[in-house]
Simulated scan of single mutants.
Amino acid sequence: MKRILLLATLLSSLYARSADVDTVSIASAAMGRSLKCVVIRPDAYARGTDSFATVYLLHGLTGRYDNWVQKARSLKEYVDRYNVVVVCPDGAFNSWYLDSPEDPKHRFETYIAQEVPAFIESRYRVRRARGQRAITGLSMGGHGGLYLGLRHSRFFGAAGGMSGAYAIENITEKQYGVSRLLGDTASKARYRAHSIFGELEKPRTDTLALILDCGVDDFIVDMSRAAHKRLLELKIAHDYTERPGKHDWPYWNNAVQYQLLFFRNYFDRNASR
Rank of each mutant, 00 (worst) to 15 (best):
R81K: 15
Y82A: 06
Y82G: 04
Y82W: 11
N83W: 07
V84T: 14
V85Q: 13
V85H: 11
V87F: 04
V87H: 09
V87E: 10
V87M: 10
V87C: 09
C88Q: 09
C88R: 05
C88H: 04
P89A: 09
P89L: 09
D90C: 01
D90G: 02
G91I: 10
G91Q: 09
G91D: 12
G91A: 13
A92P: 00
A92C: 01
A92L: 13
N94M: 12
S95Y: 09
W96E: 11
W96N: 08
W96I: 04
L98Y: 04
L98E: 11
S100M: 08
P101H: 10
P101D: 14
E102A: 00
E102Q: 14
E102H: 00
D103Y: 01
P104N: 11
K105N: 14
K105T: 12
R107L: 02
R107T: 02
R107F: 01
F108Y: 15
F108M: 10
E109V: 00
E109I: 00
T110F: 02
T110C: 04
Y111P: 05
A113G: 03
E115R: 12
E115K: 12
E115V: 02
V116G: 04
V116W: 03
V116S: 06
V116A: 08
P117N: 11
A118R: 15
F119T: 01
F119S: 05
F119M: 08
F119N: 09
I120Y: 02
I120D: 08
E121W: 01
S122V: 00
S122N: 13
S122K: 15
R123H: 15
R125Y: 08
R125E: 13
V126A: 12
R127Y: 00
R128D: 15
R128T: 09
R128S: 14
A129F: 01
R130A: 07
Q132L: 01
Q132M: 08
Q132T: 00
R133D: 08
R133Q: 13
A134D: 07
A134V: 04
A134N: 10
A134Q: 10
I135V: 14
T136Q: 10
T136E: 12
T136H: 07
T136A: 15
G137D: 12
G137L: 08
G137V: 01
G137H: 09
G137W: 07
L138A: 06
L138V: 11
L138G: 02
M140Q: 13
M140L: 11
G141Q: 10
G141H: 08
G142F: 03
G142R: 10
H143N: 10
H143Q: 12
G144V: 03
L146C: 11
Y147T: 02
Y147Q: 10
Y147F: 15
L148P: 06
L148I: 15
L148D: 11
G149E: 11
G149C: 05
L150K: 05
R151T: 13
R151N: 14
R151P: 00
R151G: 11
